[in-house]
Amino acid sequence: MKLLLVEDSEALRRAVVKALKASGFAVDATGDGQEGLWMALEHDYDVIILDIMLPGLDGTKVLKKLREANNESPVLFLTAKDSIEDRVAGLRLGADDYLVKSFAIEELIARVEVLARRKYQIRSPKLVVGDLVLDRSAKTVRRAEQNIVLSSQLFALLEYLMVNAGSVISRSQIEQHIYDEQVSPMSNVVDTAVCALRKAIVVTNDCPALIHTRRGMGYLMSVDKP
């Protein structure tokens, strides 16, 4: 899952980015409202975390312009404005959630996960493909009653493929959703990661392959071989 964080406090932005990345999200971050709007319009983020009082462009204006541009990415306002009027105004403007500073980082991550699930119309935190089960809230993966330990990035990749199970996902889509702006578009980081994931989810010799390659198109997660 790829997130955008727009927060002008460098200290807070840095800490939140760390926490989100550690939780398996790919995160782009900026401290300027205008730049944040440009990034949100240019990329398909699963969740946008937006401060209200921002230099360049106010957070509420960023959200308004996003909605005017038919960008339906879930938006969570992360702000010090704690009055009822501010919360109501933010939610009425089209925000999907509102979190007041200071906050527990666990709560922010949980809310971001809920918003990400909502984007893909998934209510349960568990994703199931064949005998592979991924629990998004517990951050666990099990197959054939065995636990599989994955790095946060592989977990995010598997989660993305399982969310889109049955659909072909291109490399660029994976890059966009799993990796942040630091990754070079020319690198083979996606292929390497998919290869590593394939190996990781094989727990027995007779395990059927779940990740299939569609040449020239991308990857497909499915129980049935295409």
């Binding site: 200290a11 800490a15 500073k101 980082i105």
Partner: peptide
């Protein structure tokens, strides 16, 4: 709230 949030989040 902003510096407090930064301290809290960084610590957590």
């Amino acid at each position: 709230q902003t510096p407090l949030a930064a301290i809290r989040t960084t610590s957590e």
